[in-house]
């Protein structure tokens, strides 16, 4: 039942190539998934600004259009306002925890360096070890990098808070009961019955194609995230055959192989959206000219638009908060490793210092 503890051990060059490959892979996945999400956000924004699909459902002029009711239900299901308020409240704590670990780590280096300098001043050239300041440069550079990343995260937190501030009233409205929601939407006398008209059918078909497209994107995103490939064998073979690893070439060709088709499917999806939205815009113009609009209908439409975009913002804010919470927790792991590196080197320097002191006091 022997398991070789060193089974996974690989030469340094392979280890470094593996981590660079995983960086390239992460960037590829982020780019593909990011462009899909960005396109979906754009699509939702355009539809909300045209008050679609609500305008097609809103024939009675006073009840809550079905799509708005569905959006309200989905927000309540996801925990409503409270769930995002709680996540927003947690952000400062997560930030402080990370900052403290970083500050403590750098303080260790500073304190040890101060003592090293004092002893160098006291013993002059007899204190002949490398100055701590020189030794700690790489760690301090890494520390500065973490500080920079934390500063960016603070800005991201603020973006999320502002986004929440801009939409929380409307989100709160969506979380209310259907009666309260209905009462809050100005009613307007029923629009001329457009039920059977061709333009409503065209718009409906376009909207269902857009929904289908968005659903396909969810599966596409899962597939893209599920791709895995173990590069260690090809890196090991390259090292064995050529004595060196052309990481870039090997990684890029593998990434192209793994994600080439996905890239095409993403581009196709983006292109389809452009086409469909173009048609939606033109059909919507016909639709608007057909239905009579007056102050009342405009007022009602404005509130419906705000409710639709409040739902989209709720989804976006929830994604941002999930991303932010994950970011801070992942960063804590990395900072704890950094802290260990700092305490290790400081411990080694202290041991070395005590020995040097002993020698000097004896001589």
């Amino acid at each position: 039942k022997f398991t070789d503890l060193f089974e996974k051990m690989v030469p340094m060059a392979v280890q470094q190539s593996m981590s660079i490959y995983s960086q390239r892979k992460a960037e590829t996945v982020n780019r593909l998934v990011g462009s899909l999400r960005e396109a979906t956000n754009l699509c939702n924004g355009v539809l909300a600004s045209l008050n679609l699909p609500a305008a097609l459902e809103d024939l009675s002029g006073d009840s809550v259009p079905q799509s708005i009711a569905e959006k309200a239900r989905s927000i309540v299901q996801q925990g409503g306002l409270q769930s995002i308020e709680q996540l927003i409240k947690d952000l400062p704590e997560l930030l402080t925890r990370n900052r403290e670990i970083l500050d403590e780590s750098l303080k260790m280096l500073d304190d040890e360096e101060t003592t090293d300098n004092e002893l160098r001043a006291k013993f002059n050239q007899r204190w002949n070890r490398t100055p701590s300041g020189d030794l700690y440069k790489p760690l301090r550079a890494e520390g500065a990098n973490f500080r920079n990343v934390l500063d960016k995260a603070v800005q991201a937190d603020q973006v999320v808070r502002d986004r929440y501030g801009a939409h929380c009233d409307m989100i709160a409205l969506l979380c209310k009961s259907e009666d309260e929601l209905s009462a809050a939407i100005p009613s307007a006398n029923p629009t001329k019955t457009l039920q059977g008209s061709e333009v409503v059918n065209v718009l409906r078909s376009l909207l269902s194609q857009l929904d289908e497209m968005k659903k396909e994107r969810d599966t596409l995103e899962e597939e893209i995230k599920a791709v895995t490939f173990d590069m260690s064998t090809s890196f090991l073979t390259a090292l064995a055959q050529d004595g060196a690893i052309n990481e870039e070439q090997l990684s890029l060709s593998q990434l192209d192989q793994s994600y080439g088709t996905y890239n095409q499917r993403v581009q196709a999806s983006l292109h389809m959206q452009e086409e469909l939205l173009g048609k939606v815009q033109t059909s919507h113009q016909d639709f608007s000219s057909l239905k009579q609009s007056n102050a009342e209908t405009n007022q009602r439409e404005e509130v419906l638009k705000k409710l639709a975009s409040a739902h989209d913002s709720y989804v976006e804010i929830s994604n941002n908060l999930r991303e932010g919470t994950k970011f801070y927790n992942d960063l804590t792991e990395i900072l704890l490793k950094f802290q260990n590196k700092c305490s290790d080197i400081v411990f080694a320097r202290k041991t070395e210092r005590d020995e040097l002191l002993k020698d000097l006091q004896q001589s």
Binding site: S19, Q23, N30, L139, K152, A153, F327, D330
Partner: peptide, 16 residues
Amino acid sequence: SLYPSLEDLKVDKVIR
């Protein structure tokens, strides 16, 4: 994405 990427921070630099 809104938050910075941690990918390049994960690379463990070995101190000689």
